[in-house]
Design a protein around this nucleic acid. Structure first.
Lengths: 348, 348
DNA sequence: GTGAAAGCGCTAACAT
DNA sequence: ATGTTAGCGCTTTCAC
């Protein structure tokens, strides 16, 4: 093994027993201040590092990480996170970590609260949270902090400085990038912004910042372009057709289309059904329907967020802190924004 | 802990001692066929899984993974791999794995051979190889196989089916993608292909396939474009200027430039020195000079390969096999090709 | 060919 | 408040 210094050495050199050293290491109290300091000094001088194998073996204790994410139906955005849970599980299983999934209906505040209760009750060793409701999340994190349970945010982040880390996408930047990709090499054109009728309930629309980034880029670089909005209702396929028919009849010159959430495939379907070609269509997130449309050529580019990597990294980071007692990682981690086209989407 | 079945249980139920069970598990021989089968049967029935903590603790043995990569100067392509070594080291250190770097001059066959010898002599538990010379690499892998040492290729791969895995970029596809990005939305134009005078010695030019992908895409989608080549000598700044001056004087209409290796920054510098604007310039690899040019706007896009992730994944995969006795991973792993623009390059 | 036994370094319950 | 001790599950001599 790397280190030869054991708890026994520390005990001998500080003139106490192994038991006392163990108490010091784990802050279990019941130690005279004097011994405590003596032991700490020796540990520092010797550069003692505990042997996690021996530790795990002796304590014979499993750790649990809970992952609090929205439930999903097949093909939806949050399904992408599933792979991250699996990978996170694989990464940390050798350390005796069990990963438990707690789901909730993201449109139902009470469901979110109930899920939070389940988490607090289970008192795991760490929690990964995709925060959906501000107040409820704050209540949760408050209770976790009381219990000394570390938590990491993914997807979005709330104003709460007790979190161990955050893994997410720079939303504003993603909108800025999107505008660049839309207009680079075809400046001066108008762009249709397709939006959906506001989601019920969710406390805040995370795509607001993305839209802001887009608008800012356009204002700076393409001040002449107009950017009409059109609203569709994703739950009403019939109305989508009608709405888009009317909109594009009224704007016959527009050949650039953007959507800031993961529903660009709806636009792609409409374009295909109307036999429209030559559009530049950019959307977000590599959900299966979007990738399929990308491959068919009815979506030009997708900018992706990788909820799977966010979750995987979050689980790994928690495990490192809990099991290996590593120092907390970098707090705010902005993941890469990948540009997918039909010719590189296979590899994500 | 997850499993409650220990070697003791297995021993009891198969009517032998722990010692014998251990011999069976590790194929140490010295076991009567009869006992062997009995033990195996019980292991299977009980679903026994060894406790790696206990195992690591008792054997008290460190593992070593050697990483055989080209040496680099600051800012060069292979410097990017360094981060991957570090991350791989972090990932596997908790398992008692030591990662050792063995460098060689990639332009010197004898240096490569010497590095190979050093690896074989050290007899590590696993090796990561960026194969530079076909024959010498085959000799190395032959010797490793004799010793039962697993190895993983990164960057490129040679015809040798004994490798445990390969992590690399789909070169042909990357050229295809490159052509798409170059011509999408600006079809029909000519493209200048800047190449460097052939590298000394390296057995094969890995960008050959990339160029083939590019040419194929162009032939299929832009048959009218001509694609003149111009050769520069990266070691002679003065000659680069002269060569490009002459070339673009002779081709005044060309505003699209591509390079298939990591030297696109040389073109960017020339464009800047001549005050040329409005070019579409695409190159490969996010080495610092290229990223800087991207940010300055003199390179339009970079397609990146991520040698760091390749190396990191390779180290992790080896460690999993060596320490955790996991099944060998998926053999051929093609990494994502990322499209970098000035607005998302910060996040890689 | 096989079993017995002494650890590996740490934890935790129990003495003191 | 501190020392002692019996394991945790596996590996590895060493006898037989």
């Amino acid at each position: 093994m790397a280190d030869k210094i054991t708890i026994k050495d520390v005990a001998r050199l500080s003139g106490v027993s192994k038991g006392t050293v163990d108490r010091v290491i784990h802050n279990r109290g019941e130690v005279a201040k004097k011994s405590y300091e003596k032991v700490m000094k020796v540990i520092r001088e010797l550069g003692y590092e505990p042997n996690i194998f021996a530790s795990m073996l002796a304590s014979n204790r499993a750790h649990e990480i809970m992952v609090l994410l929205p439930e999903w139906k097949e093909g939806e955005f949050w399904e992408l996170s599933e792979g991250g849970i699996l990978r996170g599980e694989e990464d940390t299983k050798p350390f005796g970590v069990r990963v438990t999934r707690v789901g909730y209906d993201q449109y139902d505040l009470e469901a979110f609260r109930a899920a939070c209760d389940r988490v607090v009750e289970a008192a795991p060793d760490g929690v990964v949270i995709a925060p959906m409701y501000l107040d409820a999340t704050l209540q949760l994190t408050g209770r976790l902090r009381e219990k000394g349970i570390p938590y990491i945010f993914v997807d979005s982040r709330i104003e709460d400085d007790g979190y161990l880390a955050y893994y997410g996408m720079p939303m504003y930047q993603s909108g800025y990038l999107c505008a660049y990709l839309m207009t680079e090499d075809r400046p001066g054109r108008d762009v249709a912004i397709v939006r959906i009728l506001r989601d019920r309930g969710r406390i805040s629309d995370p795509t607001v910042n993305r839209r802001a980034g887009f608008m800012d880029y356009m204002a700076e670089h393409c001040p002449g372009s107009t950017l009409p909005n059109v609203f569709i209702d994703p739950t009403e396929p019939e109305s989508i057709r009608k709405t888009l028919d009317e909109f594009f009849a009224a704007h016959p010159d527009i050949t650039s289309i953007v959507m800031f959430n993961s529903r660009i495939h709806l636009v792609a379907s409409w374009l295909e059904s109307r036999g429209k070609k030559g559009f530049r269509v950019i959307g977000f997130d590599n959900i299966p329907a979007n990738v399929a449309a990308l491959k068919r050529g009815s979506v030009t580019m997708l900018i992706t967020q990788h909820p799977d990597e966010q979750v995987r990294n979050a689980i790994k980071a928690l495990s490192d802190v809990i099991v290996l007692k590593k120092d907390p990682p970098k707090k705010d981690n902005y993941m890469h924004m990948d540009v997918l086209t039909r010719f590189n989407c296979e590899y994500y």
